[in-house]
């Protein structure tokens, strides 16, 4: 049960057109992530980490291949279906937090819930739970401008988990933070995995951040390569 893959990429390719030139970013890539795993994606700049993350999270569609998250075939969905699916199943954490500056911490966390048919009371309960989890109940009426980078990122994490998604994706979540704040964020992500059994895919450049994950994959020339030192935890690694 715990090792059942929740994310499955089969022969996924993605290329972009820039004028007449075709940039092949991902080439026949295979990946399986078991439920409850904390996975780190590393690789040089421009290697396609963000591209892969966006495909798994349903922000973009592959040029060819199949992507499955739980029972859903994400790569076959229309744009509107993807939007609805993302609300329920994916929580996003960004490098630059991307909170809405006119909304308070509370209102930012509430934003994805407004798309779900919940009562006002139930919504409030979920927002407060998420804020409590990231330890920001006392700051819930502050706007992003009144919070430190680390605090803003915690609001970002609360927003990502408030819908209780299947999957959390984080693109360099500590890239813009000082060492101490980064440490706090990594602790928080680790805790989400450990105590709530959340599946987390995190892109990072920082080896120390990657070391907090259970498994590290490197993206090189459009393919995934298992980190030699750590390729233990997951049985269903990439490829044959």
């Amino acid at each position: 049960m715990a090792n059942e893959p929740i994310v499955r990429c089969i022969q996924v390719s993605k290329s972009f057109r820039r004028g007449s030139e075709e940039i092949r970013v991902l080439q026949a890539l295979n990946l399986e992530v078991p439920e409850g795993q904390f996975l780190a994606l590393m690789g040089p700049s421009g290697s396609g980490k963000t591209t892969l993350l966006n495909l798994i999270a349903g922000l973009d569609r592959p040029t060819s291949g199949t992507i499955q998250v739980g029972p859903d075939v994400v790569s076959a969905m229309s744009e509107n279906e993807l939007a609805r699916w993302r609300t329920r199943h994916v929580g996003f954490v960004f490098q630059f937090y991307h909170l809405l500056s006119v909304l308070t911490a509370y209102e930012n966390v509430e934003l994805p819930l407004l798309l779900l048919p919940l009562s006002a009371a139930r919504r409030r309960e979920q927002v407060l739970t998420a804020l409590e989890l990231v330890g920001l109940l006392d700051r819930m009426h502050h706007r992003p401008g009144q919070l430190s980078g680390g605090q803003q990122q915690r609001v970002g994490i609360a927003r990502a988990i408030v819908t209780n998604p299947t999957l959390i994706v984080a693109d360099e979540p500590t890239g813009d933070l000082d060492a101490r704040s980064a440490e706090e964020i990594l602790n928080l992500l680790g805790e989400l995995q450990a105590s709530l059994n959340k599946t987390i895919i995190m892109v990072t450049h920082d080896p120390r951040a990657a070391a907090r994950a259970q498994r590290i994959l490197h993206l090189e020339k459009g393919q995934l390569v298992e980190d030699s030192g750590l390729a233990v935890a997951a049985g269903g690694a990439a490829a044959p």
Binding site: L59, E79, N80, A83, R84, W85, R86, T87, R88, F92, H98, L100, S101, L111, P112, L115, R159
Partner: peptide, 14 residues
């Protein structure tokens, strides 16, 4: 534009 994109990421329809 950034905020519009975020709303889309969160699942808001066009």
């Amino acid at each position: 534009r950034g905020e519009m994109a975020i709303l889309k990421v969160l699942g808001y329809q066009p």
